[in-house]
């Protein structure tokens, strides 16, 4: 009697898009994510990703290129830090993927800067840093490989709002530079604000795959599946006497909608 972690999940994602993967705890989001770079293999069915074709028969050899192209940032990734210095830790990935020490160092420095760490931390031990800094080092440690597809499991969990926002901006920029970003999150505001495409999981099944606008369309449906609405649409629905052409998902849409209402009323 084995419980299926994922059951009959089937979808296609577009290159260079920003995808949000949502669903409550235990819905299979993290399990799904681990299939993206063949840490887990499907017991039946196939996965085509970054030029790889993964089936239950896929061996554990020759997966390096896949793991370079599909970068995974686990939840609380700071637990992966182990090196003596921040710089060495970030170099770990590139060196594993066959880069020379010099190249790795240049790349590591570049990405440490990209994630917003100042140059004076690079020679420190990662364990001397604050929680937020450790998180940045860990994320730099994956982004340094410059994967085609970057998957992140709640990268903002436990960070203060400003650090979160900065973090999200890094991922958005990364996507804009021509990469695919898959974000596992509980934060519906992030979904509304950044995602082009949303996957909703429940009990190991994919229950919806659509644009954010469509996913947040039906309040009843969201409630039924224990999902929240973005703050902006909650705010909009509590405004009496206002009409919105479209459910406003972001603050900008909300402001525009309110403006229209106010101006229309005059």
């Amino acid at each position: 009697m084995e419980k299926k972690g994922l059951d009959n999940v089937s979808f296609e994602l577009l290159d260079n898009s920003f995808i949000a993967l949502i669903g409550h705890t235990g819905s299979g989001k993290s399990t799904l994510m681990q299939h993206f770079n063949a840490l887990l293999k499907p017991s039946s069915g196939t996965i085509d990703i970054a030029g790889y074709h993964i089936t239950s028969q896929t061996g554990n050899k020759n997966l390096k290129k896949l793991r370079k192209e599909v970068g995974l940032v686990f939840q609380f990734p700071e637990s992966q830090l182990f090196e003596n210095t921040v710089l060495d830790d970030v170099k770990f990935g590139p060196k594993n993927f066959g880069m020379s020490d010099k190249e790795a160092e240049a790349k590591a420095k570049k990405w440490l800067e990209q994630v917003g760490l100042s140059t004076d931390v690079i020679s420190k031990s990662p364990f001397e840093l604050s929680g937020g800094q450790m998180r940045r080092v860990a994320i730099a440690g994956v982004m340094v490989n410059e994967p085609q597809i970057l998957c992140l499991d709640e990268p903002g969990a436990g960070l203060d709002p400003r650090a979160r926002e900065e973090m999200m901006q890094i991922f958005v920029n990364y996507q804009k530079a021509g990469h695919t970003v898959i974000l596992v999150t509980h934060n519906m505001d992030d979904v509304a604000k950044y995602a082009d495409d949303v996957l909703v999981m429940e009990h190991g099944k994919l229950i919806k795959h659509d644009k954010p606008q469509k996913v947040f369309e039906n309040e009843e449906w969201l409630k039924k599946h224990y999902l929240d609405e973005p703050t902006s649409s909650l705010f909009a629905s509590s405004l009496k006497g206002f009409r919105f052409k479209e459910n406003p998902l972001t603050i900008k849409e909300l402001v525009d909608g309110i403006k229209e209402n106010v101006q229309g009323g005059v």
Binding site: K64, P77, S79, F97
Partner: peptide, 19 residues
């Protein structure tokens, strides 16, 4: 569980434990 998670994280960074 933690060991498994760390191993997976390092594997994702190209570590190879069987080679």
């Amino acid at each position: 569980d933690e060991t498994l998670k760390i191993m997976n994280a390092q594997r994702s960074r190209g570590a190879d434990f069987n080679d």
